[in-house]
Computed example of a mutant assay.
Amino acid sequence: MPRPTVAQLAYGSATVVCSTIAMVLLSQTSSGPGVPVIAVSALILGLFVAMSVPARKREPAAGTATAQERVPAQRLSTTLPSPSAPSAPSRAREPAGP
Protein backbone atom coordinates (compact mmCIF):
# COMPACT_ATOMS: atom_id res chain seq x y z
CA MET A 1 0.00 0.00 0.00
CA PRO A 2 1.51 3.36 -0.94
CA ARG A 3 2.25 5.93 1.72
CA PRO A 4 -0.07 8.93 1.96
CA THR A 5 1.27 12.21 0.63
CA VAL A 6 1.68 15.33 2.73
CA ALA A 7 -1.37 16.89 1.08
CA GLN A 8 -3.52 13.87 1.92
CA LEU A 9 -2.43 13.98 5.56
CA ALA A 10 -3.01 17.73 5.81
CA TYR A 11 -6.46 17.71 4.19
CA GLY A 12 -7.58 14.67 6.17
CA SER A 13 -6.41 16.10 9.49
CA ALA A 14 -7.94 19.50 8.83
CA THR A 15 -11.22 17.86 7.89
CA VAL A 16 -11.31 15.82 11.10
CA VAL A 17 -10.60 18.80 13.33
CA CYS A 18 -12.95 21.23 11.57
CA SER A 19 -15.82 18.78 11.17
CA THR A 20 -15.56 17.69 14.82
CA ILE A 21 -15.72 21.27 16.06
CA ALA A 22 -18.58 22.10 13.70
CA MET A 23 -20.64 19.04 14.61
CA VAL A 24 -20.13 19.53 18.37
CA LEU A 25 -21.14 23.19 18.12
CA LEU A 26 -24.14 22.54 15.87
CA SER A 27 -25.47 19.56 17.84
CA GLN A 28 -24.73 21.19 21.22
CA THR A 29 -23.74 17.82 22.62
CA SER A 30 -21.79 17.99 25.86
CA SER A 31 -21.74 14.36 27.02
CA GLY A 32 -23.20 10.97 26.44
CA PRO A 33 -23.13 8.85 23.32
CA GLY A 34 -23.22 11.87 21.01
CA VAL A 35 -19.52 12.74 21.40
CA PRO A 36 -18.17 9.32 20.30
CA VAL A 37 -20.61 9.28 17.37
CA ILE A 38 -19.39 12.73 16.29
CA ALA A 39 -15.74 11.69 16.70
CA VAL A 40 -16.15 8.52 14.63
CA SER A 41 -18.11 10.30 11.92
CA ALA A 42 -15.43 13.02 11.74
CA LEU A 43 -12.72 10.37 11.39
CA ILE A 44 -14.63 8.64 8.58
CA LEU A 45 -15.16 11.97 6.83
CA GLY A 46 -11.46 12.76 7.18
CA LEU A 47 -10.54 9.41 5.63
CA PHE A 48 -12.83 10.04 2.67
CA VAL A 49 -11.34 13.49 2.11
CA ALA A 50 -7.77 12.19 2.39
CA MET A 51 -8.44 9.41 -0.10
CA SER A 52 -10.15 11.72 -2.58
CA VAL A 53 -7.08 14.00 -2.86
CA PRO A 54 -5.31 12.85 -6.02
CA ALA A 55 -1.95 11.28 -5.30
CA ARG A 56 0.93 12.75 -7.27
CA LYS A 57 2.75 10.36 -9.56
CA ARG A 58 6.32 9.91 -8.50
CA GLU A 59 8.98 11.02 -10.91
CA PRO A 60 12.52 9.71 -10.83
CA ALA A 61 14.78 11.65 -8.50
CA ALA A 62 17.06 14.29 -9.98
CA GLY A 63 20.20 12.22 -9.39
CA THR A 64 18.92 9.06 -11.06
CA ALA A 65 19.09 8.48 -14.79
CA THR A 66 17.53 5.92 -17.05
CA ALA A 67 19.60 3.37 -18.95
CA GLN A 68 19.30 5.43 -22.13
CA GLU A 69 20.75 8.48 -20.40
CA ARG A 70 23.58 6.62 -18.69
CA VAL A 71 25.02 4.96 -21.83
CA PRO A 72 25.20 7.15 -24.92
CA ALA A 73 24.21 5.62 -28.24
CA GLN A 74 27.66 6.25 -29.75
CA ARG A 75 29.30 4.30 -26.99
CA LEU A 76 26.91 1.40 -27.39
CA SER A 77 27.57 1.12 -31.11
CA THR A 78 31.37 1.24 -30.70
CA THR A 79 31.64 -1.21 -27.83
CA LEU A 80 29.50 -3.95 -29.31
CA PRO A 81 31.18 -5.89 -32.11
CA SER A 82 29.33 -5.99 -35.38
CA PRO A 83 28.35 -9.52 -36.42
CA SER A 84 29.25 -8.85 -40.08
CA ALA A 85 32.66 -7.29 -39.40
CA PRO A 86 35.60 -9.67 -38.99
CA SER A 87 37.06 -9.62 -35.54
CA ALA A 88 40.53 -8.18 -35.26
CA PRO A 89 43.13 -10.26 -33.47
CA SER A 90 43.54 -9.10 -29.92
CA ARG A 91 46.93 -7.97 -28.80
CA ALA A 92 48.15 -8.89 -25.37
CA ARG A 93 49.38 -5.98 -23.31
CA GLU A 94 53.02 -6.22 -22.47
CA PRO A 95 54.53 -4.52 -19.47
CA ALA A 96 56.51 -1.39 -20.08
CA GLY A 97 60.27 -1.69 -20.43
CA PRO A 98 62.70 -1.35 -17.53
Rank of each mutant, 00 (worst) to 15 (best):
K57Y: 04
L76D: 01
K57S: 13
R75H: 03
A62F: 14
T79G: 02
R91E: 12
A61R: 13
T66C: 09
A67F: 14
Q74W: 05
K57D: 10
R56A: 13
A88W: 10
L76I: 05
A92Y: 07
R70C: 03
P95H: 01
S84T: 09
Q74V: 08
E94H: 13
R91A: 10
L76V: 08
P72L: 00
Q68M: 12
A73T: 07
R56Y: 08
L80A: 04
L80K: 06
T79A: 01
S87F: 08
L76W: 09
A62T: 13
A67C: 10
A61H: 11
P86Y: 02
R93G: 05
R56G: 07
A55K: 07
R70D: 00
S77D: 01
T64E: 10
S90L: 15
R91F: 12
Q74C: 03
P54V: 02
P54W: 01
R91T: 11
P89Y: 03
E94N: 11
R75T: 03
P86S: 06
A85F: 03
T64F: 11
R58P: 00
P83L: 05
E59A: 13
T66H: 06
T79H: 02
R93Y: 11
S84G: 11
P83D: 04
P81M: 04
E59T: 09
T66E: 05
K57C: 07
Q68F: 13
T66G: 11
R70N: 05
A92H: 10
A85S: 06
P54A: 04
S90P: 06
A73L: 05
A88K: 14
G63R: 10
P95I: 00
E59H: 14
P86H: 05
A65C: 13
S90I: 12
S87Y: 09
